[in-house]
């Protein structure tokens, strides 16, 4: 598989300072091209662990519009927890080792087919659950991810959607009986 890492260096640099504390080496399925911005921040886990976590998150929820710096949201969040709690850190290290073992080498260097088999065999495993949980609860609860996927978040401050495209989808307009005009019309 050829991994499309369409992260613009500038957008990455802007965000990296805030989001990431460690160096992920270029190459393989994960290619991040900047190190300096990260080096400044303290991090609990090493590059290999971080890189594997990033790829696991990405393999779980691959999306063309999701860039690697977005997937770092989940990695970073777990890193933050690992900094505060040694047991989180050791669980992450252990989990990555299990994934590597199941991949018969390094997870990050395995083929996509192999990696999907590893994921399947790991369903319910601790590290699997941690990564999936972080993706669901942190990654998909992040505004930068919403922006990319097209969920617009809070609407009340903007006055709702009644004047902002709640009927703009390109499908035929239903009959007026089925869908009457709005109170403002």
């Amino acid at each position: 598989m050829k991994n499309n890492v369409n992260i613009s260096r500038r957008s990455f640099l802007q965000k990296a300072g805030k989001t990431s504390g460690f160096v992920v080496l270029a190459g393989g399925a994960v290619q991040l091209s900047s190190f300096n911005a990260w080096a400044a921040k303290k991090s609990a886990i090493d590059n290999h662990v971080a890189k594997t976590m990033l790829l696991v998150g990405k393999d779980m929820f691959p999306g063309k519009r999701f860039t690697d710096d977005l997937y770092m949201i989940a990695v970073d969040s777990l890193d933050g927890k690992a900094l505060k709690d040694e047991s989180v850190k050791s669980a992450l290290v252990k989990g990555v080792a299990e994934f590597d073992k199941a991949a018969g080498g390094k997870y990050t260097e395995a083929s996509i087919k192999k990696r999907m088999n590893v994921l399947k065999s790991m369903e319910g495993n601790n590290f699997f659950n941690t990564m999936r949980g972080e993706m669901v609860n942190v990654f998909f609860n992040n505004k930068r991810v919403w922006d990319v996927a097209g969920w617009e978040g809070a609407a009340y401050d903007k006055g709702g959607y009644y004047l902002r495209g709640f009927q703009d989808a390109d499908w035929p307009q239903p009959s007026e009986e089925a869908s009457p005009k709005g109170w403002w019309e």
Partner: peptide, 12 residues
């Protein structure tokens, strides 16, 4: 009745 939104247009 309420005016139907985008999701309704597809369903309809």
């Amino acid at each position: 009745g309420l005016p139907g939104n985008n999701n309704f247009k597809v369903l309809y």
